[in-house]
């Protein structure tokens, strides 16, 4: 590095160099680490250990009837290749879950955004409606599943309303399309509030002046929304999609209560299939391999979703 001629190599007045040895606060840091140890140990025991055991298990042919895991024979990647190449039921479950996720998430997004935009305006009973709209999110998935199972019964309220409207009722759980629709309706009812809540907070955080600037420049409300508000909302929208897609990949309770994956396997999601593999057929090793594939797939999906806004989200502010 070249230095200006009027600057000497070593400035005469300088900040004192730090003394060699332990940095100040090093001792307190190690005490802090000591305090963290029990927590770390518990997390190692209940999170990392089972994960490692499951990972090892997925490379074996172990079933509970074969005694201890050490008795099982190591099979390499056979479980994985079986799943990815031959197990059409698994591949179909993956595809079905993705379709279900795609349809539900899009509907939840559109409805959540619509509601959020509506809630930016002033109207009577807003605070009451706000609480009401958030309620579904707080109900246990099992309860939601059971409630909708009752609603969608052949002699249930949904069909009754359809009859009143002049439409013929449907055999919701006997027809694969209707069963699929019932799962999506349940899922959308349950989780639209989450989109609504995230998007509403996002909309509230959008600065006002760019919107006003666009209005002054002559933009219509639609143009303001499309060109100014939506781009600013983009990171929030993507985060909402990431949170929901992580959940929807694990979709289990509602489907279990509503259809048990039927009729046939027409509503069988990945989680339900893995559950059946592990706890109906006791193929725990094979199930573990399937679960790891789902984990890898989910990680890839989240990474893909976050890529466009990663720079924006990971910006250094301080």
């Amino acid at each position: 590095m070249s230095t200006a001629p009027y600057l000497s190599e070593k400035p005469e007045v300088a900040f004192p160099a730090p003394k060699p040895g332990k940095a100040p606060g090093a001792k307190s840091l190690s005490v802090g680490r000591l305090f963290m140890l029990p927590g770390q140990a518990v997390s190692l025991l209940v999170l990392v250990m089972p994960l490692l055991v499951a990972l090892y298990m997925s490379f074996t042919d172990w079933t509970p009837t074969r005694g201890s895991l050490t008795d099982a024979s190591f099979m390499g990647v056979e479980n994985y290749s079986e799943l990815l190449v031959w197990d059409t039921r698994f591949l179909e479950a993956v595809g079905r879950t993705l379709v279900m996720a795609g349809i539900s998430l899009c509907l939840e997004f559109v409805m959540g955004l619509g509601l959020a935009v509506l809630f930016m305006r002033r109207f009577r009973g807003k605070s009451l409606l706000f609480s009401a709209f958030l309620t579904p999110m707080m109900v246990l998935p099992v309860v939601v599943g059971y409630t909708f199972w009752m609603l969608f019964q052949t002699n249930g309220p949904v069909n009754h309303v359809l009859h009143l409207l002049g439409a013929s009722g449907a055999e919701w759980f006997k027809d694969s399309t209707f069963a699929f629709a019932a799962v999506i309706i349940t899922e959308v009812w349950h989780w639209t509030p989450l989109f609504f809540l995230i998007l509403l907070s996002g909309l509230n955080a959008v600065p006002e002046n760019p919107i006003r600037a666009a209005v002054i420049l002559g933009a219509s409300p639609g143009q303001v929304f499309r060109y100014v508000i939506l781009p600013m909302l983009r990171p929030v929208i993507i985060v909402a999609f990431v949170i929901r897609s992580m959940e929807v990949v694990k979709l289990f309770d509602e489907v279990f209560m509503l259809t048990r994956g039927g009729p046939g396997s027409s509503t069988e999601t990945i989680s339900l299939y893995i559950y059946k593999l592990a706890f109906n057929d006791f193929q725990l090793a094979y199930g573990a391999a399937a679960a790891f594939l789902v984990l890898i797939g989910s990680l890839g999906l989240v990474h893909l979703l976050l890529t466009p806004v990663k720079d924006q989200l990971l910006r250094d502010r301080y």
Binding site: P207, N209, P210, A213, I216, A219, P231, M232, R234
Partner: peptide
Amino acid sequence: GQRNIGLVFQDYAVFTS
């Protein structure tokens, strides 16, 4: 939007996206 009067804001209000 129809007045054809321009306003420059204190915080610029530039469209950052």
